[in-house]
Nucleic acid binder design. Structure first.
Lengths: 344, 344
DNA sequence: TATTTACGCGACCTACGTTGTCGCACCCCT
DNA sequence: AGGGGTGCGACAACGTAGGTCGCGTAAATA
């Protein structure tokens, strides 16, 4: 293995080194990287491998406009080494259905080679002609499907790279309040995808406080020349729990007690609110009593609100009061706009 | 290519033919499949390839308990041919975060080789030691995260295979109403993953009507000996739109008109309700007027309810009435249980 | 413009890897 | 006990991978 004169393995390593299309890699660099991994071969051999062996059998392209030729894989080529099995392929299709509603198109596009691979397998499998797998699988997302914010492909690439390699980025950002473009140097500390909007958490210029930047409002991103300023003691989970995304979350879970309508009980018996959930029948009613330890956060409260008259929260009292107050406010709204309503 | 005496390519094809662990494939079968793809080689060569070349370089195992040896890949081995790039790896991590809340653990586990591959790449990349990528990325799911219904691994494998290959399955199903186990022969027609519960749509035994089966309540599934009875004219999308999953959906979209609080307007400007959405300022208020073409479905109504007092729906009138009635009912609840409340 | 440098590429040759064939051993089945 | 299916060691012939040399070319440098 150290000598590793095994041709096959060298080919495979080489194939793994060649980047997918937007990227490219020159022959000398490839030789270098190959050497790093224990394959000390002559430049000539590498050239032969590329231009005679691999490029005839694989969708590999060569940019020969400049002299150190640079090689790349076709953008959408994908090859799983243990080929996908049918269940995995189906899972991928399902996953794609879900993710399309959750992540920006560009980001899902990043994974398209995987998904197309799965689809190709399923297509091929139904050689009888009419399996029509595409019409057999659907994902119904949780909650209202909002349209994911569009974002720029290179922005995603630059920012994700910067985040992971701990490098600063220069960005042109379209501020929300003032509709003006601003220039910042960001030091990325984290990435949060909330619903369908992706936020970059970063410190700005020379300041030490974390700020949020919606990725879709970053107009241009480039790796910065500035030096990286590390930030210690930042914890993403604490940051989120602190309410930064509108999800103020109490440290301690609370015990939810509520009466729920039959259809809600049915739902909850399939997909519990928490591990500790208990459902018990109520006398003289088709409703059931629900008890569960749930996080003290906005999400849970919204879920309860969406259930509307189908749940009747008994505890915690604060939630009960909130829900009650909310209902009163809603009614108040509908009183005050009574006149306006008539115009529709 | 027809003669394809290229060793490398034969090796690769072979590697793609060897299934991942739960599966296994015997030498004669491999020879057969290889021949199908144009590689007519001697059995001896195949044996050498497997036992001397491939199994020394790859995590390949051999079950030699029976005489036609059967080969398989390590369960969690994964090899992308153009290796993953950093943005793709990060996307995979994000995707996994989301999917963990949406699909049953076993189903996500089906994709774990992909995800572990991504994680391995990120781990390796941060050779400086402390990139701690895992602490840098979070996905906050849309809506309340219910716990996905657990389901059996082999059930998923059998059923997905049956669905795609148009084969009937014999199942032991734990009925919801009566807590008894029932035996059916199902003819799978579709698969719907709703929130976190996965349903199989199938005709039962000799009947022609579609019924839903929660995958998590299928206790045992085996490919059936029965002959496949095709069902014509079934359209999954129509079926869902027809309200089968509690999402009765009007054929025509409706025009939603509402006044929304600033924070809701903020959210909607990032992730619109629909392509046609318009937000306009209201005089004498920080609220804004929202107009959008939205589907006439339960999801949208739930979303409006969750927004509570932060939206004031003006049209369609039916929704306005529904929301108002709901608020009144909620208040009524909280009146009637006033006494009970005090005990908490 | 002349010179240098860096690559790509064709050619050549040798060592070694690949592959078909044969024979033997083993196990299972009848 | 015998025969078919399979794994495996050995061997010889063929093919080819890979190091080396040298030329041509294009870009960089003086």
């Amino acid at each position: 293995m150290s000598d590793a004169r095994d041709t096959l393995f060298r080919y495979l390593t080489l194939l793994q080194l060649i980047p997918r299309y937007p990227g490219r890699m020159s022959t000398p660099v490839l030789k270098e990287k190959l050497a790093d991994r224990g394959f000390h071969i002559d430049t000539r051999s590498l050239q032969r491998d590329l231009s005679q062996k691999l490029s005839t059998q694989f969708p590999i392209g060569c940019d020969d406009s400049q002299k150190p030729y640079r090689w790349y894989f076709d953008r959408d080529f994908q090859c799983q080494l243990p080929a996908l099995d049918v269940p995995s392929a189906l899972t991928l299709v399902l996953a794609e259905e879900y993710l399309k509603g959750l992540l920006p198109p560009v980001v899902v596009g990043q994974l398209s080679p995987h998904f197309t691979d799965a689809r190709r397998l399923l297509d091929k499998m139904s050689s009888n002609g009419l399996s029509q797998w595409a019409r057999k699988v659907r994902a119904i997302p949780n909650g209202k499907a909002l349209i994911p914010a569009a974002l720029n492909e290179t922005t995603w690439q630059i920012v994700s790279q910067a985040l992971l390699e701990q490098k600063p980025v220069d960005v042109v950002y379209l501020s929300r309040t003032s509709k003006t473009e601003k220039h910042f140097t960001l030091h990325p500390q984290g990435l949060v995808s909330r619903h369908s909007v992706t936020y970059l958490l970063a410190t700005v210029d020379d300041y030490d406080d974390i700020r949020q930047f919606a990725m879709n409002r970053i107009e241009i991103a480039t790796l910065s020349e500035a030096t990286w300023r590390p930030l210690h003691g930042f914890d993403l989970d604490n940051y989120i729990a602190g309410g930064a995304f509108g999800y103020l979350q109490g440290k301690v879970p609370v015990t939810l007690v509520a009466q729920v309508a039959p259809q809600v009980a049915w739902l909850l018996s399939e997909t519990p609110l928490s591990e500790t959930q208990r459902l018990t029948s109520l006398p003289d009613s088709s409703w059931q009593q629900l008890e569960a330890e749930v996080p003290d956060d906005q999400q849970t409260l919204w879920w309860l609100m969406a259930m509307g008259a189908n749940v009747n929260v008994l505890a915690p009292t604060s939630w009960r009061e909130t829900l009650k107050a909310n209902a009163e406010q809603v009614l108040a709204h509908y009183q005050s706009t009574l006149v306006a309503q008539k115009t529709y």
